[in-house]
Structures are given as structure tokens and as C-alpha cells.
Design a protein around this nucleic acid. Sequence first.
DNA 1: GCTTTTAATGCTACAATGTTGCATCAAACA
DNA 2: TGTTTGATGCAACATTGTAGCATTAAAAGC
Lengths: 152, 152
Amino acid sequence: MPDHPPPAFVPARELIAAHGGRVTRTRVAVIEALQASPHPLSHDEIGATLAAAGIAHDRVTLYRALDWLVEQGIAQRIAGGERAWRFEIRSDGEHRHAHFHCDRCGQILCLEDVPAGPDPALPAGFELARSELVFHGACADCGREGAKAAKR
Amino acid sequence: MPDHPPPAFVPARELIAAHGGRVTRTRVAVIEALQASPHPLSHDEIGATLAAAGIAHDRVTLYRALDWLVEQGIAQRIAGGERAWRFEIRSDGEHRHAHFHCDRCGQILCLEDVPAGPDPALPAGFELARSELVFHGACADCGREGAKAAKR
DNA sequence: GCTTTTAATGCTACAATGTTGCATCAAACA
DNA sequence: TGTTTGATGCAACATTGTAGCATTAAAAGC
Ligand SMILES: [Mn+2]
Ligand SMILES: [Mn+2]
Ligand SMILES: [Zn+2]
Ligand SMILES: [Zn+2]
């Protein structure tokens, strides 16, 4: 099983400037939060991180910052299974990978070794843009006690 | 490419009774709506079908009917990519298949030939319950004109 | 440095989707 | 027919995300 050394990330300010955006505290902090996390973060989790860092921000601003990152291809969205999006940095050249969603604690895990493809045989005229592969179940922490206790 | 003759569905009333539930107009109509559809339906679409059939119902009742169907394994939920769940009948013994979501018109297509697996190598202690494979892009209807017009 | 331009923000209001509590109704069964 | 209790209807609420618009501040020009 291959291991995954943490990638050397491009500094947030450079990333933003390279895409022709204005370097604001919020954007910098959002990118750094995503870069620091080993798994995709929800809007809410990112907001909490900013708050903890003392960076004031509006809910809407955060949504818009995330939208922009996705538009620029700096970050990508993951559907998760609940109704909230998750976000993660899109390391350059990296293939899209599958994710595991723990239905008990809600945690999402990146399965770096499992590609999100392969491309299916689609009916004529269909255009494939991307694929999302999400596994559901219980993580190691939740699995044991979950077996006796929790229901959904 | 294999073709898929429409499966002979178990009558709704029998399905419900077999699971120890009460046979109500709403449940029967929901199951029949799902059985009649070639693709997964959203809560809203099912509601519209019931309304068209003159079956009065409350939003909440419909949510609860769908929850029950999923609990019983009669139907299954699909995440789609928007925030609304889609539902489809879980034909007995049928493997879970992948879906295609058109990002322009929102339509979901069942890719019966594409299995939602295969099972990944998960870290120790993780338990796999199910997998969801969703492809995104443009359907045949939206693809052509979409190329010039629409943006997201 | 100071001014100008306009991208980004903050605020308010709203939309969409789904949930909870509780009183009432009716499906199943004796 | 009457009794039991699962299912429903209604009101109120929660969460997640959007739209419009006035204000702020990043960055470019001077
Ligand atoms: Mn990931
Ligand atoms: Mn399907
Ligand atoms: Zn867990
Ligand atoms: Zn389409």
C-alpha cells in the first residue's frame, strides 16, 4: 500500500494572485485551513476554523470564497451524503480519488489510492465532466461501539 | 450492451404488508410512482405525481413515507449532487448501479450496467455498508446547445 | 503616499430541503 | 363495532445555500 507524504502546498497568497484574485484575509485563511486538513471540510467547519483564528467573516462571504476557489480549480467540492458540501484542495495533477463517509460520526476520509473513475460507457451524446465515488459505512472509531448502540 | 426489460414489480400493497406496515393511499401511490419511473425521483417529483393523481398529502407525510421505504429496504436513496435526495425502488437481488447526473437539467439517469462498486481496500476497522458512484456532466439533450450557451 | 477603480465583503431578506412535537385519524384486528 | 396504535396533518423550526445592494478595501495608476 503506497503511503502519501503531505504535498508541499503552494502558499495561499501566491495561489490566489496566480488566478487573478484579490488576496484577502478570508481567502488566505480558507485555503490554509483546507491545506492543513487531512480530509475535506464542510462550510461550517471552515467557518469555525476562521473564527478560532480570530478572523471575522460573514457566512455569505465564506460561501462566495469557496465558490470562487472551486471555479478557479483551486478547490473541489464533494457531495458527502449529507446535504452539505465538503471542500478540499485540488493538488495539481492529482487524480480525483474516492471518499469514505462514516454514517455515524459524519467524518469523511480521503481514499487516495482509490480512483473515482473509471470512465463508464455513456449513451451517445453524453459528456462526462467528473465522477464521484463515495463509500458509506462506519469508521474504525464508530464501528465497534456502533455495532451495539447507534442505529442510523 | 445488454438491454433491460422492465422488471415485474411486486404489487405495492403486498410489498407494504410483507414488511408489516399499514397499507395507506400515500404509501401505495409512492411505490407505484417509483416503480413507474425509469429514473430516480426527488421528493418534489413524487409529490407532484401524487397531486396529479388527486391524492392529497402533506409534505411531512411524504418525507416519512420515503424514510420508511428506505428503512425497510424497499427503496434506496441517491445523493445526486444537489441537496435533494432521489429515490428509486430497490429491485430484489439487483446490484447497486451507478448514476449519471446532468449538471444542466438536473436529470438523473440509471447506468444499470455500471456497478457502484467495486469494494475498496479500507483501513482496518472500517465497515463498508454501501457505495455510491455518480457521474456528472451533460446529457445528450443538454450537451449540444449547452456547449455554446449555459455556464454551470 | 494619495487617489481611483472595482472586486470582495457584510447585511438583510429569501428559497429550498428536511425535521420535530403533538393532536387527530384511520388501518388492522379482535 | 369497537379498540389499538401506526400513520397522518399541521405548525413551528433547523440547516444549507442564494440574491440584491450599499459599503469597504485591494491593487493599480498617478
Ligand atoms: Mn479527498
Ligand atoms: Mn438507479
Ligand atoms: Zn465514524
Ligand atoms: Zn440534461
